[in-house]
Lab assay of single mutants.
Amino acid sequence: EVTIKANLIFANGSTQTAEFKGTFEKATSEAYAYADTLKKDNGEYTVDVADKGYTLNAKFAG
């Protein structure tokens, strides 16, 4: 089991951190699915991958 950390950075400057656990593939998929649920209210996002894929920095356009 691994933990994927998602740093969510919103256009207004606020941030949120979420963690997803499971296999690498499952946890990564859940992190992206969570970011997708936030698109409606926060706009499209881009992701910078860090820490060999164990940290995802998602920046929302607003």
Rank of each mutant, 00 (worst) to 15 (best):
E1T: 12
E1W: 14
E1L: 14
V2F: 05
V2C: 10
T3K: 08
T3E: 04
T3P: 03
T3N: 06
T3R: 07
I4F: 00
I4Q: 00
I4W: 00
K5Q: 08
K5G: 04
K5T: 15
K5C: 10
A6T: 10
A6E: 03
A6W: 05
A6C: 15
N7M: 09
N7P: 00
N7W: 07
L8M: 13
I9D: 04
I9H: 11
I9M: 11
I9L: 10
F10R: 02
A11N: 08
A11T: 08
A11D: 06
N12L: 04
G13F: 04
G13W: 02
G13D: 04
G13M: 06
G13L: 05
S14K: 13
S14T: 14
S14G: 09
T15W: 10
Q16E: 12
Q16H: 14
Q16L: 15
T17S: 10
T17F: 10
T17P: 04
A18L: 15
E19G: 04
E19I: 14
F20N: 01
F20K: 01
K21I: 12
K21M: 10
K21Y: 14
T23S: 12
T23G: 06
T23H: 06
T23R: 06
T23V: 07
T23I: 07
F24L: 10
F24Q: 05
F24T: 04
F24W: 11
F24C: 08
F24I: 08
E25R: 07
E25V: 09
E25F: 07
T28N: 06
T28V: 13
T28Q: 09
S29E: 14
S29V: 10
S29T: 11
E30P: 02
E30W: 05
E30K: 08
A31P: 00
A31Q: 00
A31M: 08
A31D: 02
Y32P: 03
Y32K: 07
Y32V: 07
A33H: 09
A33W: 07
Y34L: 08
A35Q: 02
A35E: 03
T37F: 12
T37N: 12
L38H: 13
L38W: 13
L38G: 03
K39N: 02
K39L: 06
K39I: 14
K40M: 11
K40N: 11
K40P: 12
K40Q: 12
D41H: 12
D41M: 13
N42F: 15
N42W: 15
G43V: 02
G43K: 01
G43S: 01
G43M: 03
E44I: 09
E44V: 09
Y45A: 03
Y45W: 05
T46A: 08
T46R: 08
T46E: 10
T46I: 11
T46D: 07
T46F: 10
V47H: 03
V47C: 06
V47L: 09
D48K: 09
D48M: 11
V49W: 15
A50H: 10
A50D: 10
D51G: 02
D51F: 00
D51R: 00
D51E: 07
K52P: 05
K52V: 06
K52Q: 14
K52E: 15
K52A: 14
G53F: 01
G53D: 06
Y54E: 06
Y54W: 07
Y54M: 11
T55E: 07
T55K: 04
T55L: 07
T55W: 05
T55V: 10
T55Q: 07
L56T: 03
L56N: 04
L56E: 04
N57R: 02
A58E: 04
A58F: 15
K59E: 08
K59S: 11
K59P: 03
K59A: 08
F60H: 01
F60G: 01
A61S: 14
A61P: 07
A61F: 13
G62K: 08
G62H: 07
